[in-house]
Amino acid sequence: MKSPPGDGDQGGSTPERRVLACARCGTPADGPPPATWTCSVESGTRRYFCDVCSRENLRAIEGRLDSSWW
């Protein structure tokens, strides 16, 4: 008996690779988030901000204000 396509050890389809981007300006990151980026959890969702946006909004980030405020 022959397996349908995508069944078995062959995997079937390639998982989509999601590109990480800054939640504020859209700057893309190659691979995992760089060490200079900031991660914020807002309403249970992780949001990443590039080093430039993080630097420009440091006081709001330290004050735990949601990014929609700044």
Rank of each mutant, 00 (worst) to 15 (best):
M1E: 15
K2P: 15
S3W: 02
S3P: 15
S3K: 10
P4T: 01
P5C: 14
G6W: 03
G6L: 15
G8R: 10
G8Y: 09
D9E: 10
D9C: 05
Q10K: 09
G12P: 15
S13V: 02
S13W: 07
T14E: 14
P15F: 01
E16T: 08
E16S: 15
R17W: 03
R18N: 07
V19A: 07
V19P: 09
V19D: 15
L20R: 06
A21N: 04
A23G: 15
R24M: 08
R24Q: 14
R24N: 10
G26W: 06
T27R: 08
T27N: 07
T27G: 01
T27S: 12
P28V: 01
A29W: 10
D30F: 13
D30G: 05
G31Y: 06
G31M: 13
P32S: 15
P33V: 09
P33Q: 04
P33C: 08
P34H: 07
P34R: 11
P34K: 06
A35G: 04
A35C: 06
T36S: 08
T36W: 12
T36A: 09
T38I: 12
S40T: 03
S40V: 11
S40P: 00
V41Q: 08
V41R: 12
V41N: 14
E42P: 02
S43V: 03
G44E: 02
G44D: 11
T45P: 06
R46T: 12
R47F: 11
R47Y: 01
Y48V: 01
Y48F: 12
F49T: 00
C50S: 00
C50F: 09
C50L: 07
C50M: 00
D51K: 07
V52H: 08
V52S: 06
C53I: 02
S54Y: 00
S54N: 06
E56K: 11
E56P: 02
E56H: 09
N57V: 01
N57K: 08
N57D: 10
N57P: 00
N57M: 04
L58H: 13
L58P: 02
R59M: 10
A60Q: 07
A60N: 06
I61P: 00
I61S: 09
E62I: 04
E62Q: 13
G63Q: 13
R64G: 04
R64S: 12
L65D: 03
D66R: 10
D66Y: 08
S67Q: 07
S68L: 03
W69A: 11
W70S: 01
W70Q: 00
